[in-house]
């Protein structure tokens, strides 16, 4: 049989907002490694924050066990699609997801405490998620997974901005098939300099991870505008992603609630 030339099915990489894959509201695109990719605008950022805020209550209220299951599921899905990701990073990325999945129901034991008090009370400090976190992701795939997983495993929802669009949106397809509720992770592909300032100044964003900002001056202005609403911040840095991550990225976006409870003799 003569071989028939097929018409190529080309893929457009779109944004990931509220569990769906919409084009940019602005209709703009840009090119990454020969692929057509949506270029996010400030209004996409606004929509993403709305989606993240809407998803927060349910995700923060889910049991730690359930959040861990879903992260582990994401690791499974990533494993099964490993061919689509950079070969030298995908093993570590899967392991990183599994590692953080394990932390979901342990972080409270490590970071919370039962405090001795002078009175007939239990006094318990427990960590709670901060809310909506805006993340400027580093360009490496392992880096992307390593900033995303710790933010959501504790119950935050997030809006991630990255110029490394192809891996990010392929990873969004992994998340979309992992039972992760829509809106917990929202991914905006495009220019950090264009979108990040709107997230940094947004009154409804509670945390800001500047790890992936490659311009020191931009990082400084972002920190300054984030100060207007007292956002929790992870400062710009370029760690070696294969190192042991520690729990710092999880605790950065946790708040401690302390309650007194009568012992009821």
């Amino acid at each position: 049989m003569p071989s028939k030339a097929r018409v190529a099915v080309r893929k457009t990489y779109k944004l990931f907002i509220g569990g769906a894959f919409p084009r940019s509201e602005s209709g703009r695109t840009f090119e990454v490694d020969g692929n057509n990719v949506a270029l996010a605008s400030r209004k996409d950022a606004r929509d993403a924050v709305l989606a993240a805020r809407a998803a927060f209550g349910k995700w923060a209220g889910a049991t730690a066990y359930n959040r861990g299951q879903i992260l582990y599921r994401a690791a499974e899905m990533l494993e099964s699609r490993r061919g689509e990701f950079p070969a030298e990073e995908v093993d570590d990325a899967v392991d990183r997801l599994v590692w953080y999945a394990g932390w979901s129901d342990k972080i409270a034991q490590v970071y919370g405490s039962a405090n001795p008090v002078a009175g007939p009370y239990f006094n318990i400090s427990s960590p709670e998620p901060t809310g909506v976190v805006a993340i400027i992701a580093p360009s490496s795939f392992l880096g992307f997974v390593s900033v995303l997983a710790p933010a959501i495993v504790t119950g935050n929802t997030c809006v991630v901005v990255t110029p490394a669009a192809v891996d990010a949106i392929t990873f969004a397809e992994v998340l979309a098939t992992s039972d992760l509720p829509g809106g917990v992770v929202n991914i905006l592909t495009g220019s950090v300099a264009e979108v990040a300032p709107w997230l940094a100044s947004h009154d409804d964003v509670n945390g800001l991870d500047l790890t992936g900002v490659d311009n020191a001056e931009l990082a400084l202005t972002l920190e300054q505008s984030a100060a207007g609403t007292l956002k929790r911040i992870i400062r710009r840095s370029s760690p070696k992603w294969t190192d042991d991550p520690g729990i710092g990225r999880m605790t950065a976006f946790l708040e401690t609630k302390t309650v007194w409870h009568p012992k009821g003799v």
């Binding site: 709107w198 100044s201 947004h202 009154d203 409804d204 964003v205 505008s225 207007g228 609403t229």
Partner: peptide
Amino acid sequence: TGHYAGPDY
């Protein structure tokens, strides 16, 4: 103000 407002306020 030139930046997005939030319902917390």
